[in-house]
Design a protein around this nucleic acid. Sequence first.
DNA 1: GAAAATGTATGATGTAAATCACCCTTAAAT
DNA 2: ATTTAAGGGTGATTTACATCATACATTTTC
Lengths: 230, 230
Amino acid sequence: MKKVTIIEDEKNCFLCQNCLKEWIPAILAHKKNYKVKKGEVIFREGDPVKGIFFVKSGIVKVHKRWGADKELILRFASEGLIFGHRALGGDGIYSISATAVQAGVVSYVDMEFFDATLKVNTNFTYDLLMFMAQDLRISERKMRNLAHMPVKGRVAEALIILKDQFGLTPEGFINIELSRQDLASFSGATYETVFRVINELIQDGLLVLSGKSISIANYNKLLKLTEDIA
Amino acid sequence: MKKVTIIEDEKNCFLCQNCLKEWIPAILAHKKNYKVKKGEVIFREGDPVKGIFFVKSGIVKVHKRWGADKELILRFASEGLIFGHRALGGDGIYSISATAVQAGVVSYVDMEFFDATLKVNTNFTYDLLMFMAQDLRISERKMRNLAHMPVKGRVAEALIILKDQFGLTPEGFINIELSRQDLASFSGATYETVFRVINELIQDGLLVLSGKSISIANYNKLLKLTEDIA
DNA sequence: GAAAATGTATGATGTAAATCACCCTTAAAT
DNA sequence: ATTTAAGGGTGATTTACATCATACATTTTC
């Protein structure tokens, strides 16, 4: 990661916007900005925890591996989102990896300073608590899906989540460049199975492809695949 | 749920022990204690959120269903643990169900009061944040396991978690009465598959059964089944 | 600009785990 | 006390996925 200096920094800083005005100088003094390239690993599962990150621009995948060549993408952190915060109160080892899937800039503060920020800015702590409750609801739904929902439903849900998080291009395609392998890892299935499922969804007129871009042609039918009433 | 009055109530009250002394009278004024029978539903996925619960005694399973007859047990709340807190900052609908698996007493405070408690007791909010970060790490590991770990490993991990949380009886058995169906739901597999896997584990000398009770005969081998290095 | 690496596409084969089926025991309910 | 329900045990069958194999396209690298 290459360190970069950004002149105007308060405007799109997650911490600055959620903390006391009086604390902003402290944030600016501690914060470091890093440029990350596509595919660059920010930290790896098992690494010692050094601090907390925020996405300034670009997209970061948060993932966990199994064995040598299997991974599960837990979520994508896009502009304004925090990542690495699951390390709070832990054993000092990152339980997940973070890798840029689209080049951008990430902000970083060391753990000690982040902890001080929480203790000083009680409103920020409260807001973060609400945010993490939301994270937990999403995780638990995904757990249930992995245990019981067929792959088709999981792919459908993955696409809906991506559409909600990243929106659509002017042409109506889901606005994220994602490899098929990453889409498979996000759905919790293999590349080949996801490939076949997508073909079925195209046959049935729920999706339309254009190169790597995916467009949702029938949202209601796609949504129905994510529901549990057979 | 039958409401019960408990005279000495500060001693084993999760809130009292983590909040400011000055706040305790407010807690005692708002808190309600309910007796729950084995199998009794405390709240159901989809119900409107009314408040937050704490286990005073007994064991509560937190679970999420799929279709008519499939469920996944997310975790067990035992003495002193909070449940229902994922509702914080949500849409006012419980995303999970809570059911007693062993009779006991649960405490309850309404959402409004809990929210006030968070705002007044900033240390409590901080502690809860750390607790939820831990919850998130556990959830994400379980997600990864459901996606990639074979059932044998998941059953092994379930048993280790149960042993860590509930300890052992004097005779060395995992100290929780759990139906095979619940063990299967906690492992994210069907009753039949878990039954077969347990038999294999007995054959291989990793487990010993006595009626419904399970004893871990070879902890290291069991632990090895939960690791990802093939 | 050749070579290596990475992503995409698709059929054939294998298998882990779900589903179905049945019976048997124990606990709860009428 | 007899029925009903709930949990436990076990084999046979099915299936949804993963795995394997192979080919081609595209991007990156030296």
